[in-house]
Design a protein around this nucleic acid. Structure first.
Lengths: 104, 104
DNA sequence: ATGATAGGCAACCAAATGGTTGCTTGTCAA
DNA sequence: TTGACAAGCAACCATTTGGTTGCCTATCAT
């Protein structure tokens, strides 16, 4: 879980996920295209995404195809974000109470 | 948005959010209690959470009370995670296709 | 008033991070 | 078979990050 959060922390990596989301199964050089980064930098980012299981790869000849794996993202939503959703209504209550208390 | 992702990338900070989720409005020293970190380290983490708008504070005498703000977390869920949710079903289709293609 | 308590400020440090350059390996096509 | 193209490896670099220590300030209670 921690690896996923860390992987998502970088804007370049989120952009890569976006690209794969737009078109799945891209090769490394395709993913590099138009980015202000060397290929090696992208390689490193993809390695981190792969380690976090957010991206899976498959060799096809000399090309390496990259596929988005949305499962960990989904799990973050389910296991982590949902927990705080529940707090939202009670937090509103807290805010109300805080505002009421502020005249003391 | 980037600040929120970065703030959530650290396990200590997520633990702090958990603590506030369990009991809202804690003081700095309360939040430090039982953690293997100096108070100053916690201060820094809280500053980052506050900059990301995940935590709001309120002075009460010499104490500083910390409140969880679940809104940015909610937004991550809505604006970011949901987008990839939609990809899930099509991704399953892709996987199926990939498995079929693997005998070439 | 004065000590204890809650927090703030700033300098410093080691390790992790995001990036580079240069070179090598593997695979396709002519 | 020999370029050209896709990707991998490794060393290096600057900056950021997560943490520390030491000291200062503000507020409460006696």
């Amino acid at each position: 879980m921690d690896e996923v959060f860390k992987a998502l922390a970088d804007a370049s990596r989120r952009a890569l996920l976006d690209r794969l989301h737009a078109r799945n199964g891209q090769t490394l050089t395709e993913l590099c295209d138009g980015l202000a980064m060397t290929r090696q930098a992208v390689t490193k980012h993809l390695a981190i995404l792969e380690a976090a299981n957010l991206v899976t790869t498959r060799r096809h000849g000399r090309e390496k195809l990259h596929f988005l794996n949305p499962v960990p993202i989904h799990q973050i939503g389910e296991r982590w974000i949902r927990k705080f959703e529940r707090a939202k209504l009670t937090a509103l209550g807290d805010l109300k109470k805080r505002l009421e208390d502020s005249d003391d």
